[in-house]
Amino acid sequence: MSDTARSIVEPGKRAKRVAGLVVAAYALVTLIPILWIVGTSFKSPNDAIAYPPKVFFEPTLEGYVNVFTTRSRQSPEYMESLPPPETWYDKLVRQRNMVITGPSRFGDRYLNSLIIGFGSTFLTVVLGVLAAYAFSRFRVPLRDDLMFFILSTRMFPPVAVAIPLFLMYRELGLSDTHLGMIILYTAVNLSLAVWLLKGFIDEIPREYEEAAMVDGYTRFQAFRKVVLPQAKAGIAATAIFSLIFSWNEYNFAVLLTSGNAQTAPPFIPLIIGEGGLDWPAVAAATTLFILPVLLFTVLLRKYLLAGITFGAVR
């Protein structure tokens, strides 16, 4: 018996301790690859491929400099003739007998990812919340069939539509455009968004909107002032899921983008250094790539839980 009173459905002390251990072990296992990537991004190329692998090493920002720049190797005589380096990254590069010849394309690709990821997330949330509201509140003909149809777009593997989509995009001039990728990711995310948001909006009693309408608001104003604030958790959860998907998406990005609208995922594996892959640079790009979603998720994590359980946790 424990010394403090507790409900019988509440887990006991020992059960809690065991659960804690299991969670800690799981967290460690899932965190190791991420920590390894972050670690590698601060290694020198030699440390990165050292065998046995190095856990302790001298950190350097070389990987990050290499991700953002293109460089060329020069003869020692030429290096001698240069004026002293102006910046810390110039100095870092020159230690390897190289000079910076210009910025790399990583910045562009990263920007593309931001535009396409957040653009499609925004569009998904706007369209999703409007559609979910309509499905929740109006007598839409064939509502259940339509809801099922919307969900069924998730049931086939994306590869199945790769070729038709490729041809369609080429004909429509959407290949390798930001707009094309935003539309594509929005279409994919919308099914989950509608289902998720409908669950949340169903939970909001209509009386609130009706009260607002009696108080002199139109339906759309009532939707904005009363429904949206109360669907906040659902909107946040939907936004996280959409962003995670479109941020990480690789297959369609490889297929449909190249020079102009290419996102970071297909670009990162192409980062090549001298004599093979530049692992610290790849790791640095990956670390930077993980960051926005990580921040977004940590900021909104309380809604994420509500989203996974379709609003059951308040």
Partner: peptide, 15 residues
């Protein structure tokens, strides 16, 4: 429309 009628409604619940 409800807004045009200028009536006030006290609901049974969820007010």
């Amino acid at each position: 429309s409800p807004a045009q009628r200028d009536v006030a409604f006290v609901f049974q619940q969820y007010s």
